[in-house]
Every structure is written in structure tokens, then in C-alpha cells.
């Protein structure tokens, strides 16, 4: 009984491989397309205004003169300020959860912190408008300016309107906290037992072990998580748009309204009056894209480095 042929092609396999490869390639393709597209659309404005687009503060749709300096300044200041507020808290929570919290408390607290990331941006904005901004205007700003006598310093001078750089920074801090905290927690958990045991064997207390062995080992990963948070903060749109005051001006005072690149686009894009205005907004998008790309690549690289160490 001679068996039937062993021959036959695996066309299905080839099609399947081709299809999944095509899906996988769609991701780089999308990114390239997006970058080229935004850059091309931004080109007319960048060509017209040159470096002044980045350095000038004059944004005048009527006269067709566009300088994005206040938005760039506002984006960076609000994000950095947010990180200054969020980082100690987020790292504190991560250390608490990975090192100190009793087992029964770990899951619930981690869940609550992660839940912060699940709240939509627009809901933060709503809360910001009706709770945070009034609270800052009536309690925090008077406290800082008058009771603590900081009103004379440039950082806290001027009238307390409410919508302000400070409000944007606080709301951003709340929003990026869960991102920093959860990545930091992962990084801390990736620190090998041997590192901890070595420190404990030398007679270190638990806290000395964390400070002397765990954190240094995880430092570049923690830094990565902070930069990841920075990436989130830089691109955050709705909540910031709703509380920052949207004024195209650079002010040294955190009490003064400001602008960010994302909120500038959100506010003006659908009302852009002419092609140059549109191109200027695209250019703002291009600058934002470039900054977040650099920040994200840096962050991923740092986190990846620690995780690879942990595996090795």
C-alpha cells in the first residue's frame, strides 16, 4: 500500500506570515507617515518664520505672525513643575507598595493608584475648573502670597485669577503620578534578591537597604519612569486646556495664566482662519511631536536597560 504523496505546499503559512508581518509593519509605517505628514504640513510656517517661530511671543492670526515661544515655555514649565510635585509622591507610593505595605494592603492601594490613570482627561478638567481652580484661588494662592510672604518673589506675584500655570501643574501632577508610580514599582520589584540580601547581611536596616542598595540599583529605571511621566505631561491636552487660562504670554509668575502647545492646537485648530495659521498650528504639533519622541525614546531606553539587567 503505497502511501499518498507527501508533497504539498504550505501556502496558508506563507499568507499567514505575510499578513502578521504586514500588521506588524503597520506600526512603523504609521509613525513614519505621521512624522512626515506633520513635518510637511508644518513646513510653510517654519520656513516663513524660521527661528523666530520658536523664540517669538507674538501669535497674531489677524496679522499672520506666529511665534510659539509662550506655548513651548508653558508646556515645559507646567510639565517640569508637575514632575517636581508628582515624583516624590509617586516614588514614595512605589516604595511603600513594593517594600513596606502588608500584603493585604498592596492590591487595593495599587488598584486605587492605577485607577487615577483610568479617569479620562476631560473629567480631570471638569474637576479642575470647578474644584481645583477655586481652591487654589481662594486658599492656596493667598496662603503662598500673603501668609508666607512670597508675593514679592517673581514666582508668586500678581493677582490670583485661578486658571494658571500652577493649576495646570497640579492637575498634571495628579495625572502622571500613576504612570511614574507603576513603572517605578515594576523597576523596584525587578531588583534581584541578592542585592537586598547583600545589604541586609552587612547589617543595614530596611530603610538603609532601600536607600543604599535598591534605589541605586534601580535608579536609571526610576529616572526612566519619571521621563515617561514627562512624556505624558507634555502631550496632555484636555485637562490642561481647561485650567491653564490659555493666554499667549510668558510670565514668571505661576499665578498667571499661560498656554501649552497641546492646548493651543486644541483651541485654535478647528477655527484656523487661513493656511498659514493652520501651518503654524501644525508646526506647534511638529515641535510637540519632536519633543515627546525624544523624551519617550530616552525613557524607554532607560527602563529597558534596568529590566535587562534584572533578567541577566
Amino acid at each position: 500500500m503505497a502511501s499518498t504523496s507527501l508533497h504539498g505546499a504550505s501556502v496558508g503559512d506563507r499568507i499567514f506570515r505575510l499578513a502578521t508581518t504586514a500588521f506588524a509593519l503597520s506600526i512603523p509605517l504609521l509613525l513614519v507617515l505621521l512624522a512626515i505628514d506633520v513635518a510637511a504640513a508644518a513646513w510653510p510656517a517654519l520656513k516663513t518664520f524660521g527661528v523666530a517661530f520658536l523664540t517669538s511671543s507674538r501669535w497674531d492670526a489677524v496679522d499672520g505672525v506666529f511665534g510659539a515661544a509662550p506655548a513651548i515655555y508653558g508646556t515645559i514649565v507646567s510639565s517640569v513643575l508637575a514632575l517636581l510635585i508628582a515624583t516624590p509622591l509617586a516614588v514614595g507610593v512605589a516604595i511603600f507598595l513594593s517594600e513596606f505595605a502588608p500584603a493585604w494592603l498592596r492590591q487595593p492601594v495599587a488598584f486605587l493608584v492605577d485607577l487615577l490613570a483610568a479617569i479620562p482627561s476631560v473629567v480631570y478638567g471638569l474637576w479642575g475648573i470647578f474644584v481645583l481652580v477655586p481652591f487654589l484661588r481662594e486658599r492656596v494662592m493667598p496662603l503662598l502670597a500673603d501668609r508666607l510672604h512670597l508675593g514679592g518673589t517673581p514666582l508668586f506675584s500678581g493677582p490670583a485669577y485661578g486658571p494658571s500655570m500652577l493649576a495646570a501643574a497640579v492637575i498634571l501632577a495628579i495625572m502622571v503620578l500613576p504612570y511614574i508610580s507603576s513603572v517605578t514599582r515594576e523597576v523596584l520589584m525587578a531588583v534581584p534578591r541578592s542585592q537586598r540580601e547583600a545589604a541586609l547581611a552587612l547589617g543595614a536596616t530596611r530603610w538603609e537597604m532601600i536607600w543604599g542598595a535598591v534605589l541605586p540599583y534601580a535608579s536609571s529605571g526610576v529616572l526612566g519612569s519619571i521621563i515617561l511621566g514627562l512624556g505624558r505631561a507634555l502631550g496632555e491636552t484636555m485637562a490642561v486646556t481647561m485650567v491653564i487660562g490659555n493666554r499667549h504670554e510668558i510670565s514668571s509668575s505661576l499665578f498667571a495664566p499661560g498656554y501649552t502647545m497641546a492646548s493651543l492646537i486644541a483651541n485654535e485648530f478647528s477655527e484656523a482662519t487661513n493656511d498659514l495659521h493652520l501651518s503654524a498650528l501644525m508646526a506647534v504639533g511638529a515641535v510637540l511631536l519632536a519633543i515627546t519622541l525624544v523624551v519617550n525614546v530616552l525613557a524607554r531606553w532607560l527602563v529597558w536597560r534596568v529590566q535587562r539587567q534584572g533578567q541577566a
Binding site: S3, L6, H7, A9
Partner: peptide, 17 residues
Amino acid sequence: LLEGKDIYARGVNPIEV
């Protein structure tokens, strides 16, 4: 060789094997 046929011969589908 499976029943005299080389399963590693060109064109043989491993799935059939």
C-alpha cells in the same frame, strides 16, 4: 525514508509527514 520515500526530499511538506 518513510516507506521508501525520503521525508527530507525537496518539495515534501513536513505537515504531511
